[in-house]
Every structure is written in C-alpha cells, then in structure tokens.
C-alpha cells in the first residue's frame, strides 16, 4: 500500500491542505493549520507540492466545454454560475454511445408524431424555458428527441437514456447553419454521428432536425455530445480532425475553423 506521509495525528491531510490553499479555511482553523505547517517539515513539503500543482494548473488549465451564460439561464440555473469559463472543446469519453447511425432518419418519424414533438420543442426554445436545449450567443440551440419503443419525447438536461433509445438531434439558429454531432472518447478518438461526408445544412429556425439519428448501444454512464455548427460548408472529416488534433501540451483540441462554434450536452445512460 501507499507509504504514509503523515508523521503524526496532527499532520494535515491533503484535504485540509487543499482547503487551506483554496482559501476555504479561516479563523482558528486557518491559524492552527498554518501553525502546524510552520513546525512540520513533511506537511510543509507537501504544501509546497500542492502549491506548485496549483500554479501549474493556473498556467495550463484545460479549458472546459460548458455552455455560455444564455445556456445557463435557459436551463434555469442560478445566474451566479454564468461565469466566463472558456467555451472550448475538450475530449470526453463516448465509448458507450458509439451506436449505430441511422442514415434513414425518416424511419424515426414514422407514426410517432415527430412533427408535433418538434413543434413543442420549438415552442419551448422560443420561450427559453426548456431544459432540452442549450442556448449560446446568437440564439443557437442544440437538443435531441428520443424515441423509446412507441414513445417519443424531448431530451431534457442530463436526460437518462436507455440502451436501444434512438436519438434525433435538433439544432436551431437565426440563420442557416452547417451542423454535425460528434462524440470524443477518453483516448481522444472522435466519432462523427453522421454518415454523410459533409455537414448538414439546416435552414434558419428553431429545433430543425438533423437528417440522421443514432441508436444507443449497451454501455452505461454519463457522457457528452458535441455539436459543431458553421456558417460555411465543411467536410465532416475536417471537423473530426480539428476535434481530434492535439494542441501542443494542452489537452484542448486544435481550434475549429474560424466560422464554426460548438455546443455540448451531457446525457446519462442507465438500464431501464
């Protein structure tokens, strides 16, 4: 097992040191922690290690792929969280969703009232009250509709999905956009969720369905989807390469083409 670091019961755990370094401790707790550090070489050394770790993080912190302020507001989250975290793409594990791309997405619409569902989603988007889509600058929305057996419903924030569910992605913008959806796994493998070699051109409007759908496979867990939308045509392979390309020492993939931006969604897959 791991060789113990703490020399005495009074020694500070990593948790206590992290709390101290992040400014969570105050008053007597902070004083006693600092007093211990002043007299304990082992804890002082560990504190230096953690401080160096923090500096390294500050200098090369991986960017987060999080929705912007409007998306936060539309999801009904407190405005306090509408921070300025950079909206970039970072690899995320997508092993489980490597489901079958259904090229004939028309089957998705057969007998299940997709038109009504999309109209409902568009109404939600219009009122900015939906948890089904994430909204960023320019009124862009990204969501999905789920077909489960005979049921069809709009995917919500952190939607729980089941193996066999079929997802039809939707996208909305105030001008025509070229759109595609990807998953990026832990090893940086990027999986496009469309068979077409080009991004799909969608007309302006809310909740426009993408032409293809995917069926989820058997694996379980919380995962992330990335939609890339561009104002000009691009090959799917070009976007795939941009998402997969390393960016030097940073884990953040190389930048997308200048006319493109991205949206992402977290979904949770569990057994029924």
């Amino acid at each position: 097992m791991i060789t113990p670091r703490r020399q005495s019961p009074d020694c500070l755990s990593d948790l206590k040191l992290d709390r101290l370094l992040s400014g969570e401790l105050s008053g007597e707790l902070e004083s006693s922690a600092r007093a211990h550090l002043a007299g304990c070489a082992a804890c002082a050394a560990r504190s230096l290690e953690l401080s160096a770790d923090r500096r390294s993080f500050a200098e090369s912190a991986p960017a987060l792929d999080l929705p912007g302020p409007q998306g936060v507001a539309s999801a009904g989250l407190p405005a306090v969280l509408a921070g300025t975290v950079p909206a970039r793409i970072m690899p995320a594990r997508q092993r489980w969703i490597g489901g079958v791309v259904l090229a004939a997405a028309a089957m998705f619409a057969l007998g299940i009232g997709l038109t009504e569902i999309l109209r409902e989603q568009a109404e939600r988007d219009g009122s900015s009250a939906s948890g089904a889509t994430r909204t960023k600058g320019g009124g862009v929305t990204f969501g999905f509709v789920v077909r489960r057996g005979d049921r069809t419903f709009i995917g919500e924030v952190a939607q729980t999905l089941h193996p066999g569910d079929v997802l039809r992605f939707t996208f909305g913008a105030s001008s025509p956009e070229y759109v595609g959806v990807w998953g990026v796994d832990a090893e940086g493998r990027v999986s496009p969720y469309q068979q077409s070699p080009e991004l799909a051109r969608l007309p302006a409007g809310q909740s426009q369905p993408l032409p293809e759908a995917i069926e989820l496979d058997e694996s379980l867990g919380e995962e992330r989807l990335v939609a890339v939308h561009c104002s000009a045509p691009h090959a799917v392979s070009e976007i795939t390469a941009a998402l997969a390309a390393p960016a030097g020492a940073s884990p953040v993939p190389a930048a997308l083409p200048a006319d493109c931006a991205s949206e992402s969604r977290v979904i949770v897959k569990a057994l029924p």
Binding site: E24, P62, L64, L81, M90, A92, V157, A158, R224, V266
Partner: peptide, 26 residues
C-alpha cells in the same frame, strides 16, 4: 482531465447537488 471536465459540467447542470452540508472542497 475527463473527470475534471465532467465534475464541473455536472455542477453547471445541477448546482443543487451541492447542498452546503460540507465545505465545497470536501
């Protein structure tokens, strides 16, 4: 790094997960 991303994305999606019963670091 994926876990780091997932943790903060999850906090953005569901901030109510943090109920304030412990410190944020905890």
């Amino acid at each position: 790094r994926e876990i780091l991303h997932d943790v903060f994305a999850s906090l953005l999606e569901k901030p109510e997960q943090f109920a304030g019963h412990s410190s944020i670091m905890t």
